[in-house]
Write a protein that binds this DNA or RNA. Structure first.
Lengths: 229, 229
DNA sequence: AGTGAAGGTCACAGGGCTGTGACCGAGCGT
DNA sequence: ACGCTCGGTCACAGCCCTGTGACCTTCACT
């Protein structure tokens, strides 16, 4: 017997939480609630969810910001709840990686059916993609230069992967911190980042790619395409 | 410009190595040679190959045994070289996870074209499968019980995955050592395995699955289906 | 019941990873 | 040229992972 899908529902209004969780449960979901982004994030990191239902308007930290954080580490479906007038929110939401949205007020049945449809489509996690950058290839579990494995820790690999995915464009400190540590910028963050990237550079240097990573002062770092100075 | 595919060619006959590597290079492959299983394994672990061409008859350690070791950690295409009379070898080779075979003597062009075809089909690594075992779900990067993440190291996760993939059947010490450490049985192996599985059991116990892993005396361990005693 | 082998438990030690703080060099603005 | 900020380098310390060895418990055989 299959276990029910588990949804994380994030909204600061208790009545809305009740409506959403009830609608989902009539469709066979189990659900856990959070009333702000921080507690939602904490729950998300400790349990495995099949769906996240997320109000855009959250206190202190935007629902979209939470959506981005989630997207950095997971392909879990995200369903946004937006206000009727929030056209820009809806566009921003899809750009932040949400899969769908429902506009308030909504019929609970519609939400439940949309949730069910999204989860049904999420049958298999997408195949991990290998990023190619000149002689550098960065997969999900390892990276190589000219076919030779780099000796990198998991943290270092995440950072290198983020740089490679930018296709030669600069990546901000903030994005790198998000990718490497799943945190927003704060004190000490850049110091950790400096050292971690130093270690990645050493590994690249050891396999014949010195000076691959370049600092962009005040912005972040980049992995320029080969042949560019 | 795309880099050439890199092949690992394993054969104990120098003349055969020359024939194979020359044939592959005419098809645009780069190649590295090994004359026995151990040196091949060492090369394989340190570089990333797009293809392995593997003679079945190797000194000291069978080519099939090497094929199995490779398959434990990689989906890289494997092309076997077999003797004309080796029907059972060929069947055993496919069962060991090889993708294709070429029978000696062979036309170098045929080998090259088969190699090219295999590599062309290997476009994307298969999506990682999540194994479900009652309330336990074991993915490639994490495992959960009732949706709650288990705190496991990479080694522990590999072992749990191996047990879960056996669908309630016992898994031998040898298979567990292969999955966890990529080694054959030797002195001290079972001691490490005992301790590592002890740590996995502790984690399962902490999330509500005590006694999940059961020893099968003299054979190995199993993860029986729930409801069986 | 006794014995020996196999499995379970546990703590210790070593190595690797990671965050931190200090120091030095480079770059930019004045 | 100078000063300040930002980036690079490095070593240290703490934590986690892992292999090992010792000891205890359990099980199977006689």
């Amino acid at each position: 017997m299959e276990h029910p899908h588990l949804a994380l529902v994030v909204d600061d209004e208790p009545q809305m939480l009740d409506i959403v969780t009830f609608a989902l449960e009539t469709q066979g979901f189990a659900s856990v609630s959070a009333k702000d982004a921080e507690s939602a994030w904490s729950l998300f990191r400790n349990r495995r969810f099949d769906l996240v239902v997320l109000d855009v308007m959250l206190p202190q930290s935007s629902g979209l910001s939470l959506c981005r954080r989630i997207r950095e580490v997971s392909a879990v479906p995200v369903l946004l709840l937006t206000a009727k007038s929030g056209v820009q929110d809806r566009i921003a939401g899809l750009e932040a990686g949400a899969d769908d949205y429902v506009t308030k007020p909504f019929h609970p049945r519609e939400l439940a059916l949309r949730a069910e449809a999204i989860v049904r489509r999420t049958a298999v996690a997408p195949a991990p993609v290998e990023l190619v950058h000149g002689p550098l290839r960065v997969g999900q579990d390892a990276a190589t230069v000219h076919g030779r494995y780099l000796h990198l820790s998991a943290l270092e690999l995440r950072l290198l992967r983020r740089l490679a995915s930018a296709q030669g464009q600069p990546v901000s400190f903030r994005d790198l911190l998000l990718s490497g540590w799943q945190i927003d910028e704060g004190p000490g963050g850049r110091e950790m980042l400096k050292t971690a990237l130093y270690r990645v550079r050493k590994a690249l240097h050891g396999e014949g790619m010195p000076r691959a990573i370049r600092a962009v002062r005040g912005v972040g770092y980049e992995l320029p395409h080969p042949g560019r100075d």
